[in-house]
Computed example of a mutant assay.
Amino acid sequence: MKNLLLFAGVLALLSSCHRGNVDDEPAMSNLTLNLNGLEDLGGDFLYEGWIIVDGAPVSTGTFSVNASGELSESTFSLDTEMLESATNFVLSIEPVPDPSPDPAPTKLLIGEFNGDMAAVSTGTVAASFDTVAGEYILATPTGTGAENEKYSGLWFLNNSSGSPMVGLELPTLNDGWKYEGWAVIDGVPVTTGTFTAVDDFDEADPFSGSNPGPPFPGEDFLHNAPSGLTFPTDLRGGVAVISIEPYPDNSPMPFTLKPLVGMIPADAMGVQALGDNVSASFPTGTVSR
């Protein structure tokens, strides 16, 4: 009888210890991402999700995206209590290797939880893209002005008054982002330079001539043509683009965010308009917990 009582006591003790270990383990719940429009960042960058808990970011994990836009991971297991306390979800672009445990300035998406769901958008890139507009001209102010060069330059300005004026209406970007102009020449995107101000020079002129250009974003395509292209060229029939690029940039090609895009007419003369491309090129989606 004593042995039976002792055995029962040991079982009770073991059972109690086991229950205590289970109770010490935090409950876990899934965070699920349903995101569209993300692009492959290449081998040097990853996407990283964050939940905001008591005003502080908590990483939900990193993932990549393939050429088809498929996420390598879309479900992440997190502490239930922490997840339920989260007020927002943020998606950032992080370098590999990542030197910091904090989110990079390049934050692509944000959304506020409403119950168990957060609809995410690019509110971290700029305050709003409700109003964007663009105009440009074809001209080669940095060249000789020869007839065969007049259609080989793209400048985001309006000169209809006789003097060059601002041609772009774009919101101020948050840290971690820059605008970049592009001319698509024979199917090849060629940069006109990155910029943050629409009323000043952009940050590079690798293809321009020796004469000074106007203090607006733009480029003459006269020298140093990329492989497969010949400068001077004729931009008519191509495409003019304004993109938004991560900074640091993940690729020499245009990023997925292209707020302004316009075909360059074959008979382009004078000031041309760029079309609003925000809804077509900006990622969207939901995050559920």
Rank of each mutant, 00 (worst) to 15 (best):
8 A>R: 13
221 F>W: 03
260 L>W: 03
124 T>R: 13
34 N>I: 05
186 D>L: 07
58 V>P: 01
245 E>I: 07
146 A>F: 04
281 S>P: 00
132 V>H: 01
217 P>M: 10
99 P>V: 11
213 G>T: 07
186 D>H: 03
260 L>N: 02
115 G>W: 15
74 S>A: 12
282 F>L: 08
43 G>M: 06
243 S>F: 04
206 P>L: 02
224 N>Y: 06
244 I>N: 09
36 N>K: 13
202 D>W: 10
135 E>W: 05
274 L>T: 00
163 S>R: 01
273 A>I: 11
277 N>V: 08
281 S>W: 01
89 F>R: 02
268 A>D: 00
119 A>E: 12
96 V>K: 10
107 K>L: 15
232 P>G: 10
56 A>H: 06
255 F>R: 07
263 M>L: 12
179 Y>S: 06
137 I>N: 02
52 I>C: 02
281 S>L: 06
3 N>C: 08
66 N>T: 09
228 G>V: 08
30 N>H: 09
215 P>Q: 02
26 P>N: 10
34 N>A: 11
165 M>L: 11
83 L>T: 07
247 Y>T: 12
216 F>G: 01
100 S>R: 10
193 G>K: 08
240 A>L: 12
33 L>H: 04
126 A>R: 05
115 G>D: 14
117 M>W: 03
166 V>Q: 13
63 F>R: 01
131 T>E: 11
287 V>P: 04
136 Y>G: 00
92 S>A: 15
179 Y>P: 07
29 S>R: 14
50 W>Q: 08
58 V>E: 15
275 G>R: 07
110 I>L: 09
164 P>I: 07
49 G>S: 06
108 L>T: 07
208 S>H: 04
49 G>R: 03
24 D>K: 00
175 D>N: 13
49 G>D: 11
179 Y>F: 13
110 I>N: 10
27 A>Q: 15
228 G>H: 06
263 M>R: 07
269 M>L: 12
9 G>A: 15
188 V>K: 11
118 A>F: 01
66 N>R: 05
196 T>W: 04
185 I>M: 10
199 D>G: 00
202 D>E: 12
79 D>E: 01
139 A>D: 09
205 D>E: 13
157 L>F: 08
234 D>A: 12
188 V>C: 05
251 S>M: 05
106 T>K: 11
241 V>M: 13
88 N>Q: 14
51 I>P: 00
170 L>Y: 01
186 D>F: 04
102 D>Y: 04
187 G>Y: 13
11 L>R: 04
91 L>A: 00
107 K>V: 12
211 N>K: 09
55 G>Q: 08
235 L>C: 05
106 T>R: 01
162 G>T: 13
202 D>Y: 11
254 P>V: 14
265 P>R: 03
208 S>Q: 04
93 I>K: 04
285 G>V: 11
129 F>I: 10
132 V>L: 00
240 A>K: 06
124 T>Q: 14
251 S>F: 07
119 A>R: 14
46 L>D: 12
62 T>P: 00
35 L>S: 09
